Simulated scan of single mutants.
Amino acid sequence: MLKNIQAVAFDLDGTLVDSIPDLAASANAMRVELGLAELPRETVQSYVGDGINALVHRALSGDYHGKVNANLLERGFPVFMRHYAHHIANATRPYPETEAGLGLLKTLHLPLAVVTNKSEMLAVKLLKELNLLDYFSIVVGGDTLPERKPSPEPLWYVAEILGVAPENMLMVGDSHNDLLAAKAAGCLSVGVTFGYGNMAQLACDDATRPDLIVNKLPEIYENLRPSQPKD
């Protein structure tokens, strides 16, 4: 199934790195500055995946589907961005074996990409601070194009830039947005079990069932490397 893969795209938060500690810290710094009580880290984690605008809106309302007046949003957004930009890698770390997995894939001479709903500027900054940026040929953020995941547009864009057909590109992620985008783009998909999404639950739905599920990134290499000739 994976023998024709010519490029691999990765989600960022929840797939390559665990960024919840710093996202939660910035969300709570914003709330405290605006006179609001802090939120539990697990609550902030449930708000992640649809970009910074959505995260700030949800963190201000304290509800995934909550409403926030424009004035509060206008005051809160720059506070969050200022704090997060300065503390983006305080506690954020790559998941175990992330670098090993990326390094193994590079030995197959496959171009690697990041396709995230995080803003491009913040994604690049985070990857650079964690010494991961050089693994990737391109980084596409949630504001790079008019549409973001679950739209297929970011994956089609990456495939075009890398000169591969979408069906020959793999999308690796932890959330419904990643898997929906992959299916809509015609890419094969890999779901990771260690991220923020419930991969067992996602795998039960035809719309979000990944083609492969892994517990660590080096397993992708094991599935992509050429078969060894038998004696």
Rank of each mutant, 00 (worst) to 15 (best):
N71R: 11
A184E: 13
I20Y: 11
G66C: 08
L180W: 08
P152M: 08
D63A: 13
E147S: 11
L105M: 15
P78H: 01
R93M: 05
F77N: 04
E219Y: 01
A9V: 00
K216F: 13
K3P: 00
F10K: 01
M121I: 10
S175G: 14
V172Y: 00
Y196C: 08
A27M: 00
A59Q: 01
P229R: 09
M199P: 03
L224F: 06
R58G: 06
T107K: 09
Q6P: 00
P226R: 12
V68P: 09
R225A: 11
E167Y: 12
G197S: 07
Q228W: 13
A123L: 04
P226H: 12
P229L: 05
I88F: 09
R82N: 03
F77I: 03
L34Q: 04
P210G: 09
E219F: 04
G195D: 05
G76K: 00
K128S: 13
V214Y: 05
A181S: 15
N131W: 07
F77T: 08
A203P: 10
D63L: 14
E129M: 09
N28L: 05
E153A: 15
I52M: 12
K3L: 05
L2S: 09
G76M: 04
D18F: 10
A100R: 14
L55E: 03
R93T: 06
G163E: 14
A27R: 02
L108D: 08
V140A: 04
T15R: 02
A37C: 14
L145P: 05
F77Q: 02
V17E: 01
A181M: 13
I52R: 09
I88P: 06
E38S: 15
A203S: 15
N177T: 04
D22C: 04
Y95T: 05
V139H: 07
A29Q: 15
A25L: 04
L36E: 14
V32T: 11
I20C: 11
E97V: 01
G173K: 00
H176C: 10
L155G: 04
P146G: 11
N131Q: 13
P152G: 08
L60M: 10
L122A: 06
T208D: 03
Y64A: 13
P111A: 01
F77G: 03
P154I: 07
V214H: 03
L217H: 06
M30C: 04
S19Y: 03
N53Q: 12
L122N: 10
N117P: 10
A182R: 02
E33P: 04
I52F: 02
S61Y: 03
D50N: 15
E74P: 02
E99F: 01
G191Q: 03
A70G: 11
L110Q: 01
G66Y: 01
N53M: 07
P210S: 11
A113Q: 06
A54L: 12
Y196W: 12
P226I: 09
N28W: 07
Q201N: 14
G173R: 00
L2I: 08
D174E: 12
M81F: 06
K216W: 13
A9F: 03
L126F: 08
D11Y: 02
P40D: 14
N117H: 10
N168E: 10
I220V: 15
A85C: 01
L179Q: 13
H176F: 10
T92D: 00
P21D: 07
H57V: 14
K183F: 07
T43N: 07
Q45T: 15
N117M: 07
